[in-house]
Amino acid sequence: MNKEIVSIENISFNYSGEKLLENVSLKIYEKDFVGIVGPNGGGKTTLLKLILGLLKPVKGKITVFNSTPLKGRTKIGYLSQHEYIDFDFPVTVKEIVLMSRMQNKLFKNYSEQDLIAAENALNKMKLLEMKGKKLNELSGGEKQRVFIARALASNPELLVLDEPLNNVDIFIQKDLYELLVELNKEMAIIVVDHNTEMLSKYVKEIACVNKCMINSVDYHKIKKISGENSVIISGENPEIKFSGELID
């Protein structure tokens, strides 16, 4: 049995007085590759930010690597939706990847080891030739690979990816997922994606978040179902049937 790395127990989260998540539970184990799906505004991103300690639940308990999210999160490599990122920022790909080596530091100079870790991560993401470029000189897929490389350079044990296919050319979306499958041999991955069809081809489990519940469903056996509105996901036929309210 694989070790448990993230445990979410009965958490609730409110935003501007409105319930965004209620009594949500989910467990993530080593080597898991979990896809999180659900409608817009259903709380997918919120759930990731709770795991990362960027938001605090009003109720319930989150454990990350046997610790609080604030302590455990340093073992997580995070790819956000880049809502705060200026792609015209004067910074090169290599400098961005090196940023993950600033972990726990007030200030530091990059060591030989840091530079090697960055090169390795760039190499894994096939970005070595791009390392001197600025973000706005790259394609959408390359940009996402830069941020995945940054996540990898800190040698994470869990990758948390929020909509990694955003602005990625449809023809190379498959390539990106194949890279993730490769990475999954070494680390657990949680990925949020609204493209359910693509997601279900590659991930091992799918969990659905829709405001009031999350249900994690294994491809072959139901891993856990909680909440009154259950979700059934069939592994062979990745078609999701929701009971209860769902805005597409």
Binding site: L52, G53, T74, F89, L106
Partner: peptide, 26 residues
């Protein structure tokens, strides 16, 4: 001394926070 810290925090503050950098102090 703080060049790398400033660069990391002003480029992507949320990420710096997930890496447990002292963002407010920086």
């Amino acid at each position: 001394v703080f060049f790398n810290s400033f660069l990391t925090v002003i480029f992507d503050e949320e990420y710096a926070e997930t890496k447990n950098m002292p963002v407010t102090l920086i």
